[in-house]
Design a protein around this nucleic acid. Structure first.
Length: 443
RNA sequence: GGGGGGUUUCCCGAGUGGUCAAAGGGGCCAGACUGUAAAUCUGGUGGCUCAGCCUUCGAAGGUUCGAAUCCUUCACCCCCCA
């Protein structure tokens, strides 16, 4: 059997597949393979990892990956897996998102001009000039409505009596189906991959190609990556885990994977890394023997952080993690602390406030608490720390003796929420957030 | 075009004139326990100058000593009929 396919099978990445034997046969020769991505945000996030890794595996095996950004389909909204009608996106926003996502993909795929170099296309380019009438004649003609109604993605929406589905979203399937035909015409692409929620769209494309071009195309899906507790991978209380270091620091990214549960980590190692089978099985074994060592989680976090943020990003994340968990902060050189907390949310407060600033105010200013009431509660419950030492005095006023070095201190709320507070000289500078979204901020 | 149902605090969802900052569940936060896990237990979960005050129940008006609860208009959502 084909080596790539065998590996995918072992990893559990093949959920559904059309005509498996023929598809595997096809893979003996270099092929073009496509996966669609939604340009709904200005960064890729953990949810896109599986698709990117999938293309990466195919590229490593000598095939050409085609990334299809759904510029057009993104304007419509995919009903699959959505419980509600989706908001439409502006063309300008889409363009911006597309550019940002492509940049990030370079980490995963080789976009060189070699025969197996990855391609990035945007379905907006071939959809924008398609007239409504010709689309109905050429594409819509091939879609029996009764078949569409039977698709899970549509049916579930129709059964939910309080939501319904608009004609626009109903038509989404046609657009995506046409993508496949277009890619076959222009790039000879005969294979589409996607998450299991895309199965209906993929098969719709295969059907359409058979009717319009009389060819057989192939599709396969990977299982959706969900946590054992049913939650979505890549989401935390504080929001989505992004791949952009500006939206999710390498430290938080690393920590996310480090905290994956035992139940899920084996699956993550298989789905998301290229670690060889022997190593993954050895980790499974180690995890059974000594779960508290968290070898699997560490390996997972290391591998992914290195891929997404590079060796420097990984080193930074590890350094921060060591300091934040376990090590006493007092006594660590100020420069080290500043460096480590550089990517942790922080705030600057005028130096003159030393001696009058209360802990409650500091917690609010640093974003660790959303209101004074919340800050007060955290202190009352023993969840507030200065430089990793618990403070239970509600009236606590921060003074010079609390500073680590000459100008900063580390606030902490609960087990894992840290913020750096810096006392600066400019009187005019307001207490402001220096970095992107705060871990505790609800937006 | 006609008829019906709905819009409550992060979510679901009670609440039909005062005892409502609003039951219950979920989520989330904190603590204990731990392995930076899970489960479990405990407490918390609108804001503040915090034994008091202020702002919330789709929006705007109105009735009333007093409204999430009653009336009017508007907006949006869902269903049925044409």
């Amino acid at each position: 059997m084909n080596q790539l396919w065998e590996d995918l099978r072992w990893r559990g990445l093949i959920y559904q597949v059309t005509e498996e034997d023929a598809l595997v046969q096809l893979l003996e020769q270099p092929q073009s393979v496509y996966v669609g991505f939604d340009p709904t945000a200005d960064s890729l996030h953990v949810g896109s990892l599986l698709g990117l890794m999938m293309l990466r595996r195919f590229q490593a095996a000598g095939h050409r990956p085609i990334v299809v950004l759904g510029g057009a389909t993104g304007m419509i909204g995919d009903p699959s897996g959505k419980s509600e009608e989706r908001n439409l996106l502006d063309p300008e926003v889409l363009e911006k998102n597309t550019a940002a996502m492509q940049e990030q993909m370079r980490r995963f795929l080789d976009f060189s001009s070699s025969p197996r170099g990855a391609l990035l296309v945007n379905n907006y380019d071939w959809m924008k000039d398609f007239s409504f009438l010709s689309f109905l004649r050429d594409v819509g003609k091939h879609f029996p409505v009764n078949v569409m109604l039977a698709k899970d993605s549509v049916r579930s929406r129709l059964e939910k009596t309080d939501s319904g589905i608009s004609y626009t979203e109903f038509s989404y399937m046609l657009l995506q189906a046409y993508d496949f035909v277009y890619l076959y015409d222009h790039y000879g692409c005969r294979i589409q991959l996607g998450g299991s929620d895309q199965w209906g769209n993929i098969t719709a494309g295969i059907d359409l190609a058979r009717r319009m071009r009389h060819v057989t195309l192939y599709g396969a899906t990977w299982p959706l990556l969900v946590k054992a507790d049913g939650g979505k991978m890549g989401k935390t209380e504080s929001g989505t885990i992004w791949l952009s270091p500006h939206k999710t620091s390498p430290y938080l990214f690393y920590q996310y994977w480090y905290n994956v549960s035992d139940e899920d980590v084996g699956k993550c190692l298989r789905y998301l890394t290229e670690l060889p089978r022997e190593e993954i099985e050895a980790l499974d074994e180690a995890r059974r023997e000594a779960p508290h060592l968290r070898d699997s989680q560490r390996r997972l976090a290391e591998w992914l952080t290195q891929l997404v943020h590079g060796p420097e990003g990984l080193a930074e994340a590890q350094r921060a993690s060591r300091l934040l968990f376990g090590e006493e902060i007092a006594g660590v050189p100020e420069a080290t602390v500043l460096e480590v907390f550089a990517h942790v949310p922080g705030s600057r407060i005028p130096r003159s406030r030393l001696g009058s600033l209360t802990l409650v105010e500091a917690l609010v200013a640093s974003g660790l608490a959303n209101s004074r009431g919340e800050a007060r509660r955290a202190i009352e419950q023993g969840g507030a720390y200065i430089n990793n030492r618990r403070v239970t005095d509600i009236e606590k006023v921060i003074g010079p003796e609390d500073l680590l070095g000459s100008r900063c201190l580390v606030l902490r709320r609960g087990k894992k929420n840290y913020a750096l507070v810096e006392f600066v000289n400019q009187e005019t500078e307001d207490a402001s957030c220096r970095d992107a979204p705060l871990p505790t901020a609800q937006s």
